[in-house]
Simulated scan of single mutants.
Amino acid sequence: MPGACRPGRQCTPGDPFAARDHLRALTAGKTVVCRQLDTDCYGRAVVQCFAGELDLSCAMVRGGFAVERYGRLRC
């Protein structure tokens, strides 16, 4: 969201509000299930989330609302 990108970092382009609204539309009325795939070098969980059968990461990238930053998605 605006102001969330730290100074000196390259931030993801686009409208964060449009991305939020798109994600809301993708998940509306669906059960969201996430599964942990890994843990990154900072101890954070790396997860894959689905709304029904839809991979949310793939859908967000495909729709132009997100970018692949830390690795390649398998969509």
Rank of each mutant, 00 (worst) to 15 (best):
E68Y: 11
G52K: 10
L37V: 02
A25I: 10
L73F: 10
G71W: 02
G43M: 03
A66L: 03
M60D: 04
K30T: 12
L73V: 07
L37S: 09
G14F: 03
V32W: 10
R35P: 06
T12Y: 00
L23E: 12
P2W: 05
V47K: 15
R62I: 08
L54Y: 08
D38W: 13
Q48W: 06
V61K: 04
E68A: 13
A66E: 04
C58H: 14
T31F: 04
A59W: 04
C75F: 06
Y70G: 12
V33W: 08
A4L: 07
T27H: 09
G14A: 04
Q48F: 04
C11G: 09
R44Y: 06
R35M: 11
A66D: 06
S57A: 15
F65K: 06
G14S: 04
M1I: 10
A19T: 04
M60T: 01
R9A: 11
M60N: 05
D15L: 08
D15A: 08
A59V: 01
G14K: 00
P16I: 01
R72Y: 02
A45F: 03
R62A: 15
T31W: 04
R9T: 13
D40N: 15
D38P: 04
A59F: 05
H22T: 01
T39D: 07
T12K: 03
F50L: 11
G64K: 00
M1N: 11
L37K: 13
M1V: 11
D15Y: 05
L56R: 00
R74W: 12
V67L: 14
Q36W: 05
G3A: 05
A45C: 02
R74K: 14
R62E: 14
L23G: 09
H22S: 02
Q10T: 13
V32Q: 09
P16L: 02
P16G: 04
T39H: 05
T27F: 06
Q36C: 06
A59D: 08
G71K: 08
L26F: 07
G63V: 01
